[in-house]
């Protein structure tokens, strides 16, 4: 057994510098998933974005379909499907199909849509996105339950006696998780529907301090709706880079991190709230970015789990290209060899 229960994986937006050959960048993403599968990582979540040129996967389902055929063990989820961009019936149908084709290795991650520029192009108002996500997830949960036909009408989609023509391969259904970053909206939605949580806030400055509070908020919301949210379905997303020594790890990522922060998050997106100006420096101090030797990383994960006040099911690393390809692949290998067995 590679490790003792805590699962590890990545959250692959992905992030690729504009100007890089996108065909090769997509190829590196696939190579990374295959490498993680070989190393014994448990899961990878693949993003959906449509603008700004950095996060270049538009359809996690297409990527997952190809990756399932090239891997043997790793579970793959959408990280995340931006629910307001799709009719919920089609989301449910597509993931049921992926669940069958992967023999139970598919997972559905849900979110309101991270890039407002995507929503803008489709004429979706930013202030409506979270409500739409909640409405869509409610419909998806009813459809996946495969009980009564679902009839439902909102101001943006309608279901008329809708039922899936296949039940999920996984009984009663595949894993579903909601993304939570800067606001309480994600954790409340996860609680309301009794599904897992992807805590992206764990990698943001100050995010760790709120982890336990957020989880309790989700538990209270679940109770209100007669649901439960299992800690096993809670995933913490942080930045990580591992090398033999602390100094070497820091040296390998320093330049790439600055380029990503300045070129993408500041100059392109205007640095979203909660996003630090210096995620490497601030994150290292706060323990939200783990860069260093295997021992340093292991201590960081222990601290991260302490913040949860009861544990979580998985730790996911936000996939980045802060270091070059070779050092990035080696980072994941060092982690799998020297850190993973401790957890």
């Amino acid at each position: 057994m590679a490790h003792r229960g805590l699962r590890f994986g990545i959250f692959l937006a992905p992030f690729h510098r504009v100007g890089d050959n996108p065909t090769l960048a997509l190829g590196r993403d696939m190579e990374l998933i295959q490498w993680l599968d070989h190393l014994g990582y448990d899961e990878a979540w693949i993003g959906e974005h449509h603008s700004a040129g950095w996060e270049i996967i538009a359809s996690p389902e297409i990527f997952m379909g190809a990756a399932f055929e090239r891997t043997r063990h790793i579970r793959l989820g959408s990280g995340v499907t931006s629910l307001p961009y799709h009719h919920p019936f089609l989301v449910a149908q597509r993931f049921v199909q992926l669940d069958h084709m992967s023999r139970g290795r598919a997972m559905l991650g849900c979110g309101p849509g991270a890039l407002v520029s995507d929503a803008y192009m489709m004429g979706i108002k930013a202030e409506d996105q979270r409500r739409m996500m909640d409405e869509s997830l409610g419909a998806i949960m009813q459809l996946l339950a495969c009980e009564e036909p679902v009839t439902m009408k909102t101001d943006w989609f309608e279901l008329k006696e809708a039922r899936l023509h296949l039940a999920p391969y996984t009984y009663p259904r595949f894993d579903i998780a909601v993304a939570s970053a800067t606001t309480p909206s994600g954790v409340l939605t996860a609680g309301k529907h009794g599904v897992g949580l992807l805590s992206l806030g764990a990698g943001l400055p100050g995010g760790n301090a709120k982890l336990a509070e957020h989880w309790r908020m989700g538990e209270r919301e679940a109770e209100k709706h007669g649901k439960t949210i299992p800690r096993d379905g809670w995933r913490l997303v942080v930045n990580m880079h591992c090398a033999e020594e602390d100094e070497r790890a820091f040296r390998e990522v320093k330049h790439g991190e600055r380029r990503e922060t300045l070129s993408y998050f500041s100059e392109t997106l205007g640095r979203p709230p909660m996003r630090s100006e210096d995620p490497l420096g601030d994150g290292l101090k706060a323990g939200t970015t783990l860069v260093g030797s295997p021992d340093t990383i292991a201590r960081g994960i222990e601290r991260l789990l302490e913040y949860t006040e009861g544990g979580a099911g998985a730790v996911l690393f936000r996939a980045h290209e802060w270091a070059n390809r070779e050092d990035t692949l080696r980072s994941y290998e060092l982690f799998a060899r020297w850190v993973m067995p401790r957890f």
Binding site: W54, V116, S117, Q129, T183, P184, P273
Partner: peptide
Amino acid sequence: PLQSREWCSENRSGIFGPSMNALRKAF
């Protein structure tokens, strides 16, 4: 990709501005 990035960057306040209100509303 470069044009999409430039469009976002040059229209930051118009495109991303409404997300500020949306975040506040979520709280």
